[in-house]
Design a protein around this nucleic acid. Sequence first.
RNA 1: GGUUCCGUAGCUCAGCUGGAUAGAGCAACAGCCUUCUAAGCUGUGGGUCGGGGGUUCGAAUCCCUCCGGAAUCACCA
Length: 596
Amino acid sequence: METIIRSYISEAIDALYMKSIDSEQVQVQETRREFEGDFTVIVFPLTRYSSRSPEVTGDEIGKYLVSARPEIISYNVIKGFLNLVISPGIWTNMFREMAGNVNFGTRTVSGDSPTVVIEYSSPNTNKPLHLGHIRNNLLGFSLCRIAEANGLKVVKTNIVNDRGIHICKSMVAWLKYGNGETPSSSGLKGDHLVGKYYVLFEKEFRNERERLISEGVDPESVVEVAPLMREAREMLRRWEAGDSETVSIWKMMNEWVYEGFDETYSRLGVSFDKIYYESDTYLRGREIVREALSEGLVYSESDGSVWADLSDDGLDRKILLRADGTAVYITQDLGTAVIRHEEYQFDRSVYVVGNEQNYHFQVLKALLARLGYPWASELYHFSYGMVELPEGKMKSREGKVVDADQLIDEMIATAETMSEELGKLDAIEESRRREIYRKIGLAALKYFILKVDPKKNMTFNPEESVDFNGNTGPFIQYTFARIMSVLRRADGIGYRDGSQSLSEQFVPNGKELSIIKAVRRFSHIIASASDEMNPSLIANYVYDLAKEFNQFYHDFSILNESEPERRFFRIELSRLVSGVIGKGMWLLGIEMPERM
RNA sequence: GGUUCCGUAGCUCAGCUGGAUAGAGCAACAGCCUUCUAAGCUGUGGGUCGGGGGUUCGAAUCCCUCCGGAAUCACCA
C-alpha cells in the first residue's frame, strides 16, 4: 500500500508541478494514532518541487489525490504532514487476503534457496550450561527459524569444545578427589558432575597457590610450578599424545556431559542438524596451517611456532600453532570453517558468539581470506551482548553463575504456583497441567531474553527479572489462550472457516481497523528481523499485537455481537490474530498453550 | 593507551534507513469481573533522551568532542 501511495504522490507532483520525482524518494508512513488518517505523507521534502509552503503543498496534493484516486476518500494537513484516509474497502480486502493465506508473512524454502549455516551454543564440556548459554541458544535457534521463514535453507550446527586444558582440570580433580563418582552412583546430572570437579579444581588450586606464595614462591611463576596445574598440563600432553588411559577417561566424562547437555537442550527446545567436535576439527586446522606454511602464506618463528601477520588488514600478528606443534583456539576454527564449507557449500555462515570475541572473528575472517578461501567474506559474526547479574559478571570459575537447569526448574515452578493461585486449570488432568506450566515458565524466560536487542548487554535479576504480567511471554500466551477459547466456542456453535464471506460494504470499526493494520505489519517485521538478524523485533511486535487485541477483546464482544456479518468478521479476525501470534512466537521458539 | 560497543522514567527495556506532543512494562496510586479466561482493561504521577557543540525545515536517531560504563588487544577457549 505504501508503494502505491508513493507512486500516486509522484503522479501528483507530475500533474501539479510538472516535475518528476522518483517515487522511492517519497516518505510515507502509517499515520500516528493521535491523528486522523491511515497513511501520512511527509510534505517537507516535496516543497522543493512545489515551491510553496508545506501546508499549501500538502493541501494541493491532498485535493488532487481525493479527486483522482477513488480509494483515497479524504485528507487533512497538519503542519507539514499530509494524512490520507483510505477507503474501508481496501482494508477489508486486505483482511480477506491475509486471512485466506496460510503462509501469510513467510516465504517457503525451495531447491535453489541460498544455504546459510548457523552455528550456535558452542559449549565447553567442563561445566554445565548457564544463563549466558541460554541467551546464545535462544538467539541462535530463533535466528534459524527466522531465516527459514524467509526462505533460506538453514543448517543448524553446534561446535563442541571438547578438548583443552579446562577439561583436563575436571579430569584431574575427578581422579584425585572423585572416588569413582559417576552420574548413576551419585544421581547427579552428568554435566553438573563434571562441572563440580572443575570448580573443585579451581578451588584447590587457589588454596595451593596461596600456600605456595606464603611459602615464598614467586607469585609470577606460581602457575608454572603448582603441582595441580602441572598435573593438568601433563594430562593435556598425554591426551594430545593419544595416551589410551587418558583418552578413555576423557571419553567417559565427555559422554556424561553430553547426556546432560542433551537434556538441557531438549528442555530449552533447541536442536541441531549437525554437531562438530573440536577434537576432530583441530586436526584439519593443523593441516591447513602446515600447508599454508609450506606455501609461505604464514611464517614460523625460531622456536618453531607458526604465525600469521595480519598487519595489512589492520590487525596484529596471530599465533596459529605453538612451538610444540599443538593447536590453539583459532586453529580449530579454521578447520571447522573449511570442513563446513566443503560439506554444505554455504552462501553464508553465521556464528552466534558473544561480543567478547569480536576480535577473534575479525582475525578468523582475515585469516581465511589470507589463506585463499573466497567464501571468507560470507562469514558473519552474530555478536550478542553479555548477560550480567545485578552484582556484575558471572564467574564460572568460582561457580557464581545462574545455572540453566536450575533456572528452568524455577521458572516452571513459579508458573505452577501462579497457575494454582489463579485456579483456572483445576479441572484439567495432571499431566496436561504440567505441560501447561512448562510452556508458561519457559515462555517467561525465553521472551524475557529475546525481547532485548541482541547486541546489547542485559541485566538479569533472578529474583525479580522474570515476571508473568505486562510485557512478558505469559501475557502473550494468555492472549492466545483467550482467542483459542473463543474459537472453540465458535466452532461449538457451528462457525467454520469460510462459511461466510464479507460483503464489499463491510466497514471495520476503529479498533478492528487498528488490528488489521497491526497484522499487516507482520510480513515487514519478519523480513526486517531476518535482514537485521534480530529476533527482538518479532518479540516486540507480537507484544504490540497482543496488547492491541486485548483492548479489542475488552471493549467489544465477539460471540455476542448481534450483527451476524460483524460477528463472523470478529471471529475470523481473532483467528487471524491467533495465527500471527502463534507464528511469531514459533519464530522465537516459544510454545503456546491452548488454555491457561 | 589502541579498537569496538553501550548510556532513554526509580528499575527492565522499545523507539526502523532523521519526522508530528519520546513510548511500553515493572514498581506507586485510583478505578473496572451477573456478560467470550481480570496472567486482562482504563486512568494518574514520573524524562534537561549522559554533557556540550555541529549538520537542517526538523535530531533520542547522523557528525565531532568530552564524561561514564563494558568488551577486547593471550602460546585460555
